[in-house]
Design a protein around this nucleic acid. Sequence first.
DNA 1: TTGAAAGCGATACCAC
DNA 2: GTGGTATCGCTTTCAA
Lengths: 337, 337
Amino acid sequence: MVTSRDVARLAGVSQSTVSYVMSGRRSISPETRRRVEAAIEELAFQPNAGARALKSQRTQVIGLVVPFGPGADTSGLLPFIETIANAAREQDHDVLLVTRDEGSAGLTRLASRSLCDAIVLLDIEARDARIPVAAALTVPVILIGLPEEPLGLPCVDMDFELAGKLAVDHLAANHDRIVVIGHPPDIITRDLNFIRRFRSGTDAAARAHGLPYELHELPERGPAGVIAALDAAGRPRRGERLGLVVPNTEAVQPVLNILTERKLIPGHDVSVVGLCTDVLAESTTPPVTNVSLEPRDVSRRAMRTLFRLLDRDSSVPIDPVDLISPRLTRRQTTLAV
Amino acid sequence: MVTSRDVARLAGVSQSTVSYVMSGRRSISPETRRRVEAAIEELAFQPNAGARALKSQRTQVIGLVVPFGPGADTSGLLPFIETIANAAREQDHDVLLVTRDEGSAGLTRLASRSLCDAIVLLDIEARDARIPVAAALTVPVILIGLPEEPLGLPCVDMDFELAGKLAVDHLAANHDRIVVIGHPPDIITRDLNFIRRFRSGTDAAARAHGLPYELHELPERGPAGVIAALDAAGRPRRGERLGLVVPNTEAVQPVLNILTERKLIPGHDVSVVGLCTDVLAESTTPPVTNVSLEPRDVSRRAMRTLFRLLDRDSSVPIDPVDLISPRLTRRQTTLAV
DNA sequence: TTGAAAGCGATACCAC
DNA sequence: GTGGTATCGCTTTCAA
């Protein structure tokens, strides 16, 4: 393994000079710089991360707590991880994965062992036991999600309440009844509060518009659950214009399939608004009118905030709660006005 | 930040004793052990990872190179990451993500900076430029995928050739024509050689059975590409029993949908065998007969091999190429014999 | 503009 | 059974 000593020897300078050439923290004569850079090149020198972290108290690593482990819901997770990893790399940082099933211990491990400079927590529950632990850590932590009590930790998330409102507002003009198709039981018991927030949005909007409004949970995972929920919703009565809101990304295509099988053409006999990413909405059959749920935007924002927190001399104020506004895109599954 | 010195002071012992209590590398009197453990507990001491790595030359980190970055195909990636992260944690290791768009530089960075003890490379192309670089590293590297020239690096992958053979063998008994639905152009140009291997399996098996055999690539991504490929295959001629093989996981459900739309019931008017995970196969409508493609099994095996490589005093022989046998599960989309 | 040297925190050898 | 101490490779202060 080649060290800065080797470089120094080859360049005929001291070890500290090598360090200064690399960090640029003091002026170096052009000649010395040239020799050192040549030596670095020749030996393909890269500084030892452990030594650097030990001395500088900076690991250049972002800890990412992901919801892996028995019984975890990992659907839709990849865009978060990808965006976070890319954003980290742009700032010359790497990402260390910590599995969620370690619970709070994973957080203290990251911080106490100085494994990372900052932590991103995904998949936040409404009353997440990790929040108090995270709030007490010495490293900055950012939450992707919105707990009831953030305890001062910055949060970034979609504005699900607004999303719910957008969906209902879109349908309000020309529909007689709004039905929200819910989530399977395992999701409900997890108490992820984006569900609650979305419902409070749909709920308030339906009330504001004076529209009949029902919510039907999925009694189980998979197509059977969707069928049951649609049965509960019932077929549109004669002349009734029914609007379905599907906040469960995974249920969007199944809902469209089942309606089609029942000779209810989405966009013609019934309306469907999904909560899902634009990419997904464009690839459903037929393309579904959707409220965008863009994990990449959320992750980007979270990372921007995180690096501001790390940048101690940036005095840019940090939003304690940063809610990204969704956008509704009309596609083929909602009735024309 | 609490260090082993603090623990030593509190316990009234030397720093080295603390270290030995933690590592168990020499015998300690019960009384001393008790005091040290109490101090560790009280101070919630955790050893500094950088310092430990610096001295011990072990980071307890596995580097994972993931295909993130512009234009990367990340579908189906998550189960690999999840399984690898879980397997690492079971061996008291963490996972450091490196994005693929760093290319070979990411590999040398991981190794030269001593960021990790071993590297897992995903998404291997047939002639992957990273292989020679990886082979020259000082840390063990394992490939998930099978390049043309592994250069001595251990590889773990599904046995795609066998997968192709299984699919065709299953159809051979009662079909008159085999059509393989291919991949979209971007995948083809990537030259991921599992495609080639699968085809060589279907090809050989069809020849062995003396069956008419066609391959139709998808001219583009998305449903339109699938429609075009199915058009090219043509409807079964009067009385002809047509068997479709769909090695492209993402195309499986679209194929089923389109056939159904065309009043060709899978399992009745035409047969479909997909290459996909069992979980997916069970949740398609209708459940598709599939050859299993189990990323978790592959990842598990890779990690087992990796930790054997790290375990210097394990003399268990390492398979240079470890191909996991797939399994065909008959579901509802293939004609009864 | 450059060099010498202290020290980050853990490990493990050498003493006793 | 336990303690002292050199050392890993780098950063940065202090001196020149």
